[in-house]
Design a protein around this nucleic acid. Structure first.
Lengths: 305, 305
DNA sequence: TCATTTATTATGTCCTAGACAGATTTGACA
DNA sequence: TGTCAAATCTGTCTAGGACATAATAAATGA
């Protein structure tokens, strides 16, 4: 019997794990899991073990598995699935493996040094495409597999942010063009995608304004107006549902003036099947560079016309 | 009749405004507002106007007003309340007013230059206590009054973060003591408090690890273990309810080893009435310095004993 | 008259139970 | 084997009700 058999109320579980209250309740009815104890007032209290299971389940679902297959399983079975599930391991170059190792052993100091060294060696563009992008992917996969914990991911993200912010600050050009506004919609709290885009665009000579994460659509519109932005860039990680991303993009397009371009990138966007009228979906970061060139051509023609 | 009479579903309103679905529904029943239209399947669709009203209501509530007083009012009445509500204006020195003006006119470039200049002029410690802290407060109040928009706050927060990160990076000392781990709990997404604490502690010679925001308690425990941290510092803004902060702190204290110190700071903590066993509540940043000195005395005694 | 305790109201969040849309999978057919 | 329709799965919405806790009003005592 553990002394610290902490109990979590449903709101806390929703916040800590990221599974909605409605979903938690309906799982209980449908799959018979989780089965929280109840307090004197019949409110659900989830024991630590079940919360742990939910954490693993969340990951497996993000991995593509169906709830009916995983929502009742025990910790051991979940762990077994987790290590076996993600398709084939991609062969990573030495560099990436070293970085991953630094993350896993919590050598944040060493991690930053190594990153900075790579940045100077490869140049910003190659650093982003050949180091950061594959590193992100590897970290994401390792996280799925449970090899990297959330706090390690936080730390890693913090280090990259530091390095990139530093680089960007030397590139800043308020008179550059196009004028780009970068952020994420509410619900998307990953800022790495935004910063990587900012770095890429700054390198191309664009004038970037980074609003950070979770900007309500209404505010994006105001900011575009204030900064006379030509383009809005939104970043979506894989966390949000395809549906959420879709309606978010549509709503943003609708709210923005037609003259303002809307570009969307990030791993969440790659999964979108349908394309959108008047919204540019980006795969790799190099798409951004292409898009900027295209925009310049376009604006040049419009200017001379 | 507007062409863009956009309709928002209840989930979007919850995400964009930050008022829960349950609350929205119960307001509708109790106060007769908001009264969304319904789609073919009887689901609530909130018109733009009502969403705007909800945004203002949210602010007024954070300002201390009661729902029964504000939840039915029209846009004009809400706006009138907003400009009149916050208590007395504090006389701010020239410096702060200039900075506020830079924020309001979106001169992010100028803002950063001014901040950097002040940092060098005042030194990090005075910069934090005499510039950033009052600036934060002024921005918060101006936001309450509706004079500063969310995107302007994002931008401002981004600039300060840049300046402070830069300063911290020159201070970093992996061998310093105490070893401090900084972050926020899930639900708290404001990172400024964490960075300010990190700057203060780094200046005092502590070895800081910043996990960013929204780290689940379980992960904090793992991180403490991995980094052999002596102290965990949590930051709370005024956004979260007093109750949430309280249970969050209690739970964290319970999950951490007794030998690890738990310090809490930020404007959310100042409002806490009760104090906690074994949790240090911080008011101004200087409390941190005191706490570090105290910790060092204590650990010195323990070491020689 | 002011401070402290107690009762009352206000308010957010939880509960159950049911319904349905949209995504995914299965099955039939070419 | 590929395509389309039917069946199933699954998240999120609905309604109405209950209750704990915060905030306010009232009552008590110094």
């Amino acid at each position: 019997m553990k002394v610290t058999d902490i109990l979590f109320d449903i709101a806390t579980v929703e916040r800590e794990i990221g599974i909605g209250k409605d979903t938690l309740r309906v799982w209980e009815k449908r799959y018979g899991f989780p089965v929280p104890v109840r307090n004197e007032h019949d409110e659900r209290l989830y024991p630590q073990t079940q919360v742990d299971q939910l954490r693993l389940i969340k990951r497996l679902l993000g991995n593509g598995l169906r709830p009916s297959k995983v929502v009742g399983l025990g910790l051991d079975e979940l762990n077994a699935l987790l290590i076996s599930s993600p398709g084939q391991e991609i062969e990573q170059p030495e560099n990436i493996l070293t970085l991953i190792d630094l993350i896993k052993t919590h050598q944040s100091q060493g991690l930053r040094m190594k990153l900075n060294r790579l940045l100077l060696k490869q140049g910003l563009h190659d650093f982003l495409s050949k180091t950061i992008t594959p590193l992100n992917q590897s970290v994401g996969e390792a996280w799925m597999r449970g090899e990297i914990r959330i706090f390690e991911e936080h730390l890693y993200s913090d280090q990259i942010t530091n390095v990139l912010r530093n680089a960007i600050s030397t590139l800043r050009d308020p008179a550059g063009s196009p004028r780009v506004l970068l952020t994420t919609l509410p619900g998307e709290e990953h800022s790495l995608g935004v910063i990587m885009a900012e770095a890429t665009l700054s390198l191309e000579g664009a004038s970037c304004v980074n609003l950070g994460v979770q900007t309500p659509i209404q505010e994006i519109v105001s900011a575009v107006d204030a900064h006379r932005s030509d383009i809005v860039v939104l970043s979506f990680s894989a966390v949000n549902s395809i549906q959420q991303i879709k309606t978010g993009l549509e709503r943003t397009r609708l709210a923005l003036p037609g003259s303002v371009g809307l570009w969307a990138g990030g791993s969440g966007v790659v999964r979108q099947r349908n394309s959108f009228e008047e919204i540019k979906l980006m795969g790799p970061l190099t798409d951004l560079i292409e898009a900027v060139k295209e925009w310049r051509n376009h604006s040049l023609m419009a200017g001379t016309a």
